[in-house]
Simulated assay, not measured.
Amino acid sequence: MTDKIELYEVVGCSPKKRRKEDGAVFPACKTYMYEETPSSHVQINPDGVLKLMHDVKVLSTIQTPYRGSFYLEELWKVNCVGINLIWIRGRDETLRLIDRNGSLLETVKTSYVVSAMTVNSNQEPVFLIGLSDRHVYIYRINKVEILLELTDWLARDLHYTVNGDLLLSMHTKDGVQSKVVRYTGTKQILEIQYDSTGQPLFGTKMGGMLNLTENGNGDICVAAFGCKSVTAVDTSGCLRFKFQGNCNHMKNTLFLPSNIATDVNNQILITDSSSNVVHIIDCDGNFVRYIEYPCNGGISIDIDHNLVIGDRTTGEIRFIKYLE
């Protein structure tokens, strides 16, 4: 029986061209081949925009090795890789690679709980551990290595851009100041902290998640949990907009953005820890709709433009078709 998901309607932005993921062999797991595909299963309209479906469809649901909150085995993050693989992390000292059936393919042990994770252009997981560790780690050729060593600031999240740069969101040790730093290799090339008036872009609230992603138009989008807002800046760090929830349709009075992703239409998808639903906004910060489904275990977009969300409570991952 297909699950029904309530949506609120609006329009999105026309995207600029962005690179598609290509098939590759994962170096640390040489037996797992990424399938080649001549084109996506979803046909993009001539103007480059996919249509939002009125009634979205749950394509499949899988159980991950995380059994859920009752067992203190919570799923926290999902990262789709190519067509059929997903890196996941949760409430333990482990990275796991699974396929779309939920089968476990690879396990990476770390010295502490993995606090953030992304995947680089070589399909290698890059991650942070703990809340006070000052290193960025990479898993390649079957071993964990240090990729970057930080000094005074503590990294909170990380994301690779289309051109291969690494974005890091950071807090000061007291959690009061926040910034985003862009690296090419190990060289810092851009620091984003203040707007044109000298005010902090990402707030001055104590701690909290500071998850980030890059949009197809080049914007850097940051979900600041402690400040209850999503901030978008352009490639040079200039403020484009702040989104603080949609007051007309808010299910709860609080907006607590946690995980964040973008899609082929340059729309921004935000998981809300307060209401446990996905907010979709366009590339200018205008509210588009909700997808009302448990999403507190991570969010990603697969190569066929499906929404992939994790449920922390059950450890399940759902694949949802919402574009056509």
Rank of each mutant, 00 (worst) to 15 (best):
G237S: 00
A224F: 04
A116C: 08
F241G: 02
T172F: 01
Q177G: 04
N163I: 13
D195W: 10
T184R: 15
P200Q: 11
T118Q: 00
R240N: 03
R134A: 03
M117L: 15
V222F: 08
L190H: 06
Y160S: 03
T204K: 05
V222H: 01
S132Q: 12
M206C: 12
W153C: 07
V181R: 07
L168Q: 04
M117V: 12
L150C: 08
S229M: 14
H135S: 14
A232C: 05
L168I: 08
V119D: 02
D219P: 02
K143C: 08
L128C: 11
M170W: 11
I129V: 14
L239R: 02
V136Y: 06
T204L: 05
I146F: 00
L168T: 06
S115I: 04
S121G: 13
G175E: 04
T118S: 07
E124Q: 07
N142G: 13
I192P: 05
G207S: 14
V230D: 02
W153R: 10
S236T: 15
Y194D: 01
Y137W: 03
V113L: 13
T204C: 10
L239F: 00
N215F: 06
E214H: 06
K109E: 14
T151R: 14
S196M: 14
V181P: 05
G208D: 04
C221R: 01
A116I: 13
N122A: 13
I138Q: 00
H171M: 12
V222L: 06
G198E: 09
Y112I: 15
